[in-house]
Design a protein around this nucleic acid. Structure first.
Lengths: 282, 282
DNA sequence: CTAATAGTGTCTGTTAGACACTATCTA
DNA sequence: TAGATAGTGTCTAACAGACACTATTAG
């Protein structure tokens, strides 16, 4: 056993995403939805005053997910949310002072249900609007295969970052690497994690019920569609969208009470949709 | 900073899967394919003489994936393979002696290209045939949602294990936990990782080119189909399968030279299939 | 001829996408 | 009435699944 050897430190960091309503100008118009991520301003070196994903060191007698939840609660006052493990970042020099391996979690919260508040190691805790777009695609042929580079632009309100997602195909083997080309004001390699989390979310929203973690107890189908649209960053056709989600929701008797247009039926999540699907398949 | 605090140890472990040909009895019949995982017999406590996923401690100045590759090479003599990060296991008591966090990788190798050999911390390195099946499904309704338990049986040749995959749905939140019910002769929580790796592989084989990491340079479409079948544990229809993979392969002029039946055309991987697909979509 | 594997053509039902239409509310 | 949102019907092209058929080899 290498108990005597020098050990790396282990941290957990948690990406928290949400979708919020923007203030509406016209009382007849529905509010626009915006996709956001929660960051904290670091109180301490390294990266003092940079924005970072909330997180911290794992206690020696604490499970990883428990540590992620504790740190998130300590720094931002959020608790009791959906959480899944995203990726473990362990590059030797990702922390300038010492070797730190970071196990990164991703979580989704219902924006109507939030009480964010900076605490502990955080000077400030704040939601940043996300824009994430493919802006460049390059392909280089090599002797054995090719290298493809996709560059994504990650914009966090006033902060800007460029992420290169490099795909190397070497005969039968595919290697995917992610690198940061530029990420002003974002601490460590956290821009990488933010972009990877968005891609995981965009991917999972297509074939799972993960989006419902972003919804309140009751919602309209238009709300739900707008959440899909803002995450996928493209418009969907109403009739097709409704056909797609009809099995995942249950009608209620309630309606919205907006003024100036037809009221909309409220729905809630149908936790049995998978079973219904399986029954249909047989 | 908590440099003074007690730190966990960090290990990397690598799941290596392959598909091998079984010895054929009849010279006219094609060999059967079997799905296998590589395990080592532990030389040291804890879990001395149990079977384990190859792996070991991360050096302080070594990247995680580099450590995984080094440990795999040291213990089994395998090098230069496809590898992706699977999951990080960090339960407090997963190692009976001290706190160990294990970052687990998964890799796929071409069976015709193997030189496995036990070295270092390994008494023995051996391929185990895998059987992985859903054997029980239970659903319990709770006040706020339900809890669903799927039990999978993981059989590794002479070794037997039961894995419970527990899905808890609580209103809007879905929690998935994996627990080992029984895993004789398998070290640590490694049975969990083996089962999770199989699920990841079954999932990715449907919509990526990951299967080609298991193939030699040249192969027949029947070979390829049998690899899919043995991983997915179900039979596929030939005509449909061929339609599905046609864009992922390139014809060669070569043919098999078996006796007693029609020769089969040999193909190789087409590294451009994604681009072709995208072009088709526009 | 038989036994074995290789390879193709086509029908069917489901789904994704596009689009056009109808309905309901307030001022 | 206009302007806003809610909600539905239907056409088409693509695709997955099932199945039946033809082709080539050795003995």
């Amino acid at each position: 056993m290498s108990n005597q050897y020098e050990r790396p430190s282990v941290t957990v960091d948690t990406l928290v995403y949400t979708v919020m309503n923007e203030e509406s100008l016209n009382y007849r118009k529905l509010p626009k939805k915006v996709f956001k991520v929660l960051l904290i301003k670091r109180k301490q070196e390294p990266y003092k005053d940079f924005w970072a994903i909330p997180g911290g060191f794992v206690d020696i007698d604490e499970d990883l997910e428990a540590a992620a939840k504790r740190e998130l609660n300590e720094e931002t006052n959020i608790s009791d949310i959906y959480m899944e493990q995203l990726y473990t970042y362990g590059q030797v020099n990702r922390d300038p002072r010492t070797r730190v391996i970071s196990c990164c979690y991703m979580s989704l919260v219902d924006s109507s249900n939030l009480m964010v508040e900076a605490r502990d190691d955080a000077k400030e805790a704040r939601w940043f609007e996300i824009r994430y777009k493919l802006i460049e695609e390059k392909k280089t042929i090599t002797d054995t295969g090719y290298i493809k580079t996709k560059t994504y632009q990650l914009k966090l309100q006033d902060i800007n970052a460029l992420i290169d997602v490099i795909i190397e195909v070497d005969k039968r083997n595919t290697t995917i690497k992610r690198k940061i080309r530029e990420s002003n004001n974002i601490a460590f390699d956290h821009a990488l994690a933010i972009s990877y989390g968005i891609e995981r979310l965009r991917n999972k929203i297509e074939y799972t019920d993960i989006a419902f973690s972003l919804m309140p107890e009751q919602f309209t189908l238009t709300d739900l569609q707008q959440v899909y649209e803002v995450i996928l960053d493209r418009e969907l056709l109403k009739a097709n969208f409704r056909r797609k989600v009809v099995d995942m929701v249950i009608e209620t008797n309630a309606y919205t009470r907006d003024k100036g247009h037809r009221p909309s039926k409220l729905y809630r999540y149908n936790p049995n949709w998978i079973d219904n699907n399986i029954e249909k398949r047989n």
